[in-house]
C-alpha cells in the first residue's frame, strides 16, 4: 500500500526586513553577512500572528488540495520551538479551527528546527501502521534571535502543513529515516526569551554531521545515488549551509535551487525544509524523486525519499503556491517597527 502526502500547504507572513536594516542598527557589515550567510531578507510575523495562526492557514491549504474535510483528520501534530503557550497545546486550537475535533489525536512536538519533520515522520508512520486514515503534520515557527546576535539576520516566520494518507497519494514516501545524537549546539533554557548557540560549533559537529549522516544512510537504504534525484532540499538555517552540504554530497544547483528559500525568506526553523519541499511540489513533474533532509539542533536530522505521482498535478493549483507568497505583496519594515512587532521593546 502506497502511503504519502495527499495534500500540502504553506503560509508566509507578508512583512519583511532586509539584512541592511538590521546590520545598520548593530554596526555590522551587511555585505559581509549577505555574502557569508547568503541571506538578503527575512519574513517577520505581524503582531497578531503566531505558530497557531500560521498553522491554521497552512493546514487549510493542505485540506483544500487534498479535497478532504477537517472532520476526517485522525491526528494533528505540530512541530515548533515557538508554541504560543508553555502549557496548552497549539494543536487543540488548530484542530478546532479545522473542524477536526473531538475525534482526533493531537500532540505538539519540539526539536529545535526539525520538529516539523518529526511531526511528518510520526504522521506518516501512523497512516502506514493503519491506526489513522489521515494525519496532519505541521512545521511552524516565529523564532527570535537576541538583538545584535547573528541569529537576528535569519530567525524568520512561516509554516508548512502536510496531510498523509493512503488514498489519493500525490507524493509517495519511499523511505523515512532518522539520525540523532546528543550534541549541544543550540539551546534555550526555560523562561529565557532568546536562545544561545555554540557559534561555529553549530557547523561541522552539528548541522553537517547530522544532515550528511542522514542523507548518506537513506541513499544507502534505498539504493539511490544523488544523480537519481530530480530535487533535493536540506534544512536551511541560512543560504550557505544547505548549498554546502548539497554540493559535498554531489548534488547540483539544478537539484537544490527550487527548494532553497532561505535567501529571501530566512530560517523558518521547524517550517524550513518542509516549506522548501512545498516549493518543490509546486513545480515538480510526475515520477520525480525528491530527497528531503531536515536538521534540528540538539541534534538530529530526519530524511525522506519521496516520489511524485500524477495526482500532484491535479491538486497543486487548488491553493496559493509558496513562491507566490514569498515574492508577492511583501511589506518592508524598518528595525524599530520590527522591534515593536516582535516584542523586543520593553514597555514596563
Amino acid at each position: 500500500m502506497a502511503v504519502g502526502i495527499i495534500g500540502y500547504g504553506t503560509y508566509i507572513p507578508r512583512y519583511r526586513i532586509r539584512v541592511e536594516e538590521i546590520a545598520k542598527v548593530w554596526g555590522m557589515d551587511a555585505e559581509n553577512y549577505k555574502r557569508g550567510l547568503m541571506l538578503r531578507q527575512k519574513s517577520v510575523p505581524a503582531p497578531d500572528q503566531d505558530v497557531i495562526t500560521m498553522s491554521v492557514e497552512a493546514a487549510r491549504k493542505a485540506l483544500r488540495r487534498a479535497g478532504i474535510d477537517g472532520s476526517e483528520i485522525g491526528s494533528v501534530y505540530i512541530g515548533s520551538e515557538s508554541h504560543p503557550y508553555a502549557v496548552k497545546p497549539s494543536g487543540t486550537v488548530v484542530a478546532e479551527a479545522l473542524g477536526a475535533t473531538p475525534e482526533v489525536h493531537c500532540a505538539d512536538f519540539e526539536f529545535a528546527c526539525k520538529a516539523g519533520t518529526e511531526a511528518m515522520f510520526v504522521g506518516y508512520s501512523e497512516v502506514k501502521a493503519g491506526t489513522v486514515r489521515y494525519a496532519l503534520a505541521i512545521g511552524a515557527d516565529t523564532s527570535q534571535g537576541a538583538p545584535g546576535d547573528a541569529l537576528e539576520f535569519s530567525a524568520a516566520a512561516g509554516a508548512a502543513a502536510y496531510l498523509f494518507g493512503a488514498e489519493g497519494v500525490a507524493v509517495e514516501v519511499l523511505q523515512a529515516y532518522s539520525f540523532m545524537t546528543d550534541t549541544p549546539d543550540f539551546w534555550r533554557r526555560e523562561h529565557q526569551h532568546y536562545p544561545r548557540h555554540g557559534g561555529r560549533f553549530t557547523g561541522a559537529p552539528a548541522y553537517f554531521r547530522h544532515a550528511t549522516g542522514a542523507a548518506l544512510r537513506i541513499l544507502e537504504m534505498t539504493g539511490k545515488r544523488p544523480e537519481d534525484f530530480r530535487y533535493v532540499v536540506f534544512h536551511q538555517p541560512n543560504g550557505k549551509f544547505p548549498v554546502t552540504v548539497a554540493e559535498r554530497l554531489g548534488f547540483t544547483r539544478e537539484q537544490y535551487e527550487t527548494g532553497l528559500l532561505a535567501p529571501t525568506l530566512g530560517n523558518t526553523y521547524s517550517g524550513a525544509s518542509p516549506m522548501g519541499l512545498a516549493a518543490i511540489l509546486d513545480e515538480a513533474g510526475v515520477g520525480d524523486l525528491i530527497l528531503m533532509v531536515s536538521f534540528g539542533s540538539g541534534a538530529g536530522s530526519d530524511a525522506f525519499v519521496l516520489r511524485t505521482t500524477e495526482r500532484l498535478l491535479e491538486i497543486r493549483d487548488k491553493a496559493k503556491r509558496t513562491r507566490d507568497q514569498l515574492d508577492k505583496n511583501q511589506r518592508y519594515i524598518d528595525y524599530a517597527t520590527y522591534a515593536k512587532f516582535r516584542g523586543k521593546i520593553r514597555k514596563r
Partner: peptide, 14 residues
C-alpha cells in the same frame, strides 16, 4: 485569515 484577536496580557488565554 486566522489571526490572534487578543492576547490578554502575557499570561491570559489567547
Amino acid at each position: 485569515e486566522f489571526r490572534r484577536i487578543q492576547s490578554n496580557q502575557s499570561d491570559g488565554v489567547l
